[in-house]
Design a protein around this nucleic acid. Sequence first.
DNA 1: CTTAAAACCTAGTATTCCGATAGGGTAAAG
DNA 2: CTTTACCCTATCGGAATACTAGGTTTTAAG
Lengths: 135, 135
Amino acid sequence: MLSKKTKYGIKALTFIARQEKGTMVQIATISESENISHKFLESILLTLRKSGILGAKKGKGGGYYLLKPSHEIKMTDVIRTLEGPIAMVPCVSLNYYEKCDDCPDEDACSVHKLMIQVRDNTLQVLRNNTLADLV
Amino acid sequence: MLSKKTKYGIKALTFIARQEKGTMVQIATISESENISHKFLESILLTLRKSGILGAKKGKGGGYYLLKPSHEIKMTDVIRTLEGPIAMVPCVSLNYYEKCDDCPDEDACSVHKLMIQVRDNTLQVLRNNTLADLV
DNA sequence: CTTAAAACCTAGTATTCCGATAGGGTAAAG
DNA sequence: CTTTACCCTATCGGAATACTAGGTTTTAAG
């Protein structure tokens, strides 16, 4: 299951991407338009800023904006930032690899074999989709 | 993330599939061989039996066995039984569809658009893999 | 017929995670 | 120097996960 955090994050990003380039978008604007709790959204956008996807400007007239053109923002990065690993099992994760403690031989493991395929297919989809593709 | 329930379930099924056709396999055998808690595994195999993937025989010399040849057991069925919906969002689920209450227009939703693709790719992988492919 | 072995079933529990909320702190326009 | 809007930490209830406990029923074997 996709967490609401990720879901809201993607919605917020596409909302920002739909504006004219360089426009400042405020939390309140997104929150109202997309039906997302203001405070919750705040923490999500903060995460996206820290990961280098969004920039922010404080003070009156401030807000959030994309740091890169939307066609350069890959969904893999967005998902990894908000949701964490894309793989469904740590032992097939590229960025968050962890050995299973119950499994002596990874190459002989049926779950491993299956989940590698799922991961590869999912990765392909997410890599081929940028923010621009979703707008 | 794949739950341990599903992970253990797949491991147990492949263990059974590796035996000669029609062999009774006991919980304890699988539990020891695959490092899975006996009691937890018990509840998992029960679920698989109730869903019609496994058969069981009680009493001495009893155990679990596959109801169909392993190449007819699709991973979609196994995952749906143990993990639930394959889709990452209810609004793109084929078997467990549910409308998002925050989203007025599904066709305009970026999350929807993306997750449809992920679902289709995952489904393809899981449909093309049977138990026999994992053994 | 008895007993042991095995699945079956119900219930409970400890822990973890999620979604959200609270409440202020800090910086920059105007 | 006040308002606006982002920044940060902490907390909390509810749901889901991953087991655990203990008893019941069925079957085969002695």
